[in-house]
């Protein structure tokens, strides 16, 4: 499932480059939104949906229970 979701996000990035609507100013969605804009608004919605699926199926659950390490950081950093 993880591979499908990550693959879909990469596919979405490819679909973002919509050369098929590049020269279209005639088609209007709902009678007023130019198709090039409506398509990219759709990309934003699809992005939200795909990231929601990623949150469900690709969640790094090992990070849900992170605890502080007592001995604070090394000699170089973390000297907060």
């Amino acid at each position: 499932m993880k591979k499908i979701i990550y693959g879909s996000i990469i596919l979405l990035a490819f679909l973002h480059h919509d050369w098929w609507w590049w020269d279209n100013s005639e088609t209007l969605v709902f009678g007023f939104v130019p198709i090039g804009l409506a398509y990219h608004a759709g990309i934003s919605l699809a992005s939200g949906i795909l990231w929601a699926l990623a949150v469900v199926y690709c969640w790094p659950s090992e990070l849900d229970d992170v605890q502080p390490v007592n001995a604070r950081a090394s000699k170089n950093g973390g000297k907060a």
Partner: peptide, 20 residues
Amino acid sequence: GKRFGYTTQIQFFRDRFESN
């Protein structure tokens, strides 16, 4: 940040790249 107590990016990078 939570595990090692970092507050800033630079603290993380100093540790990760072993360079003050």
